[in-house]
Write a protein that binds this DNA or RNA. Structure first.
Lengths: 75, 75
DNA sequence: CTCATTTACTAAGCAATCCTTAGTGTATCC
DNA sequence: GGATACACTAAGGATTGCTTAGTAAATGAG
């Protein structure tokens, strides 16, 4: 679904999942699109940040500005 | 400061900034540490998400859980 | 249980990308 | 003007990823 050749997609995805290799940017973008998550989600180093990105991405674009101000106001 | 050899650090950083090459994970982690930003910040595809990550990262760790719930509650 | 099929995973070499070197050009400051 | 620092690039050697070929482990049907 991400446009990876099916002949090698199983090996490649497995190498990514196990951390043997890292995908290039175009591949990451396509995987994010297929999985409906923001690209940055793949690079979150803790679960809270990962969840935050998912929740933010799930918001309607108009709501994101308000969400951002909300978090900013907390500091 | 990120532990990149000074003989080539200028060329490398310039290649990263201009999108000619992409740094490996270890280098990205070190740059994030030096710049005091979360790693995912470098991979944000829009300014709102980038700012969100900075604001979230700036919060005290105890406050992050509350921030997360706040955003979750918005959807 | 057995066989067939799908899914999970890996090594090895070719292919692609990055890192280093060497260098040019442009600010900046004395 | 000269010196120093900063910005940027091409090219090749060094490294990493992708493809191929294959084994192993689940899963499902009969």
């Amino acid at each position: 679904m991400a446009g990876i050749d099916e002949m090698s997609s199983s090996a490649r995805m497995n190498q990514y999942e196990r951390g043997k290799h890292a995908p290039d940017w175009l591949t990451v973008e396509r995987l994010a699109a297929v999985l409906n998550v923001p690209v940055a989600y793949f690079y979150a180093t803790d679960d809270d940040a990962a969840e935050l990105l998912l929740a933010f991405y799930a918001l309607a674009p108009e709501a994101r500005g308000r969400a951002l101000e909300l978090i900013k106001a907390m500091s």
